[in-house]
């Protein structure tokens, strides 16, 4: 688009929202396809934001915030009642020795075999799943299986796999080819349901970019709608705050 077609003369009025409807529609249509004018508009919007901040202060009634928060909390209660499902707690540190622990230790102690072991575990679990399907169809847990995670644009080479145990409430997250982080940072797994994230564990990877993490949930892992791994401070966060490095 050349400069003759730009509409810079109209952008200040558009930002002020004082154009007639027809003029505003014309400007809006142009903005959709013109990044130059979009950028120009942003500068006027910031300018108007500054001007707005100079208006004389008028105190709103204290009840206004109460009214807002009452409505929001009421809405949350209703949403919770509809969902009526308990939220999972953070995964406790397992205290008992299980074959999951042995498997995890194997992964951690033999980095060179990790890709092979990862594949083997996946094959065994799928095979196990199929056998269980045949033998105990009625008792088959809903969440059994695997969930594959893919890297973001910055971590395109990274992969992850969540292997869900037979009862659906436990699993092992295996990641590889993630960058090793400095001590001040960590990766954090998030189990997300209805837009609400729950921490699934905080971890770093070894020099090979590999790590296996034990994951425990009160709800079946397969009942979560998505799984994200984000970059967080070393102790983890209460909510995702950093960029996503792996997700499903």
């Amino acid at each position: 688009m050349n400069s003759e077609t730009h509409i810079t003369d109209e952008l200040a009025a558009y930002a002020l929202n004082i154009l007639d409807a027809e003029e505003a529609a014309t400007v809006a249509a142009h903005l959709e396809r013109c990044p130059v004018c979009q950028q120009e508009l942003q500068t006027y919007q910031e300018l108007i934001g500054l001007m707005a901040a100079t208006v004389p202060t008028v105190m709103p009634p204290a009840s206004l915030k109460q009214q807002l928060m009452h409505g929001i909390n009421q809405e949350k209660r209703e949403a919770t009642a509809v969902a009526s499902s308990p939220s999972p707690s953070l995964p406790p540190t397992p205290t008992q020795t299980s074959w999951w622990h042995i498997l995890r230790d194997w992964f951690q102690q033999r980095p060179i075999l990790q890709p092979v072991l990862l594949l083997l575990v996946a094959v065994l679990l799928v095979s196990n799943f199929q056998l269980r399907q045949r033998l105990a169809e009625a008792d088959r847990p809903a969440g059994f299986g695997t969930i594959t995670l893919s890297g973001s644009a910055e971590t395109a080479a990274a992969t992850g796999l969540i292997i869900i145990s037979g009862n659906g409430l436990q699993g092992t997250l295996v990641v590889q080819d993630l960058p090793m982080l400095p001590e001040s940072q960590a990766y954090q797994l998030w189990l997300i349901k209805d837009g609400h994230p729950t921490s699934g564990g905080v971890f770093n990877v070894n020099e090979n970019g590999y790590r296996a993490v034990w994951v425990v949930s009160e709800d079946p892992l397969a009942s979560y709608t998505s799984f994200d791994i984000t970059l967080e401070p070393a102790d983890g966060s209460a909510y995702p705050t950093g960029r996503t490095v792996l997700n499903d």
Partner: peptide, 19 residues
């Protein structure tokens, strides 16, 4: 993430200005 406390803090910062 539907955290009401965060909205409460945002209101404390900007409620007076927006009103």
């Amino acid at each position: 993430y539907q955290e009401a406390d965060a909205l409460s803090v945002l209101y404390d910062r900007y409620g007076r200005l927006l009103y």
